[in-house]
Design a protein around this nucleic acid. Structure first.
Lengths: 143, 143
DNA sequence: CTGTGTGCAAACCTTTTGCAGATGC
DNA sequence: GCATCTGCAAAAGGTTTGCACACAG
């Protein structure tokens, strides 16, 4: 089953429909899995073909996120960004140069001792490591 | 030297002035060091006395952050929150019930191996652990 | 055909900016 | 007195919502 088919089944299971905007938004995400995309990014990537209204993009992204197709993330400027969800829990190395993301595994969480000590019941956590990826670091060195 | 005096000296060193709004904003932060405050929180905490324009609050918070008096943070809704800066680098346990923060030390960073492997040059990182603090967990259990 | 989805426009919320008058120092 | 600061108002982003029409199933 292709990714499109999988999503179609998930949508149908919730009484939702597969439409042209949904398909196109999905394609953008499938073709850019190494980046966190904002709504503005999506609009830019769709340039050339017919535009999709931002309201539609927001509504569909929200549904995709609820369905577990996308995962959301709030960047340093407070803008929401999204990428294809992966089952395995992981963290990100985020390039502040090109926006590329590198997923790294979540090892045994060192802060659990601290949480325990503080009677703190964790529900979830976020670890983001910012910096420059190999290409961007190289580019910076050349200039 | 009191906290106020320290801040006064820092402001003066940059040619900035200590005004009544600055003093009052500073007091709000000094009296709420166990929480991350948004601009809306500050307005609420100032209720009763004369209001301070939001533009003024934003401008002063920005200056305080530049001076290293406050540190900023982007919450899950994309709203900026601030708290008194502490030299020692640490991470947060953030209570989604009451907004309380518990600072925990940053131990040897386990992702450095990963960064190295990916030729990724870290500039900074963010670790936020969300959940319920002891009080909020207890409250929830009672209901 | 029915109910979901879309585009458009307007509203919302946080944050930023321009400006004239107020005020520390 | 001069530069910084404030309040007000307007603007700027990103995001959400209401509504009438379009369209998937």
């Amino acid at each position: 089953m292709t990714d499109h088919q999988k999503v179609y089944v998930m949508l149908r299971a919730k009484g939702l429909r597969m439409t042209s905007p949904k398909k196109r938004i999905l394609d953008v995400f499938l073709n850019n899995q190494d980046r966190m995309l904002s709504v503005a990014d999506i609009a830019a990537l769709l340039e050339g073909s017919a535009a999709i209204d931002n309201a539609t993009v927001y509504r569909n992204i929200q549904k995709f996120t609820e369905l577990g197709i996308l995962e959301s993330f709030n960047d340093e400027q407070g803008v929401n960004r999204y990428t294809v969800f992966e089952q395995e829990h992981h963290h990100y190395l985020i390039c502040t140069g090109c926006g590329k993301i590198i997923k790294i595994p979540c090892v045994k969480c060192f802060w659990q001792t601290q949480a325990l000590k503080n009677d703190f019941q964790e529900t979830h956590h976020k670890l983001e490591v910012y910096g420059k990826c190999a290409e961007c670091a190289a580019m910076k060195a050349e200039i």
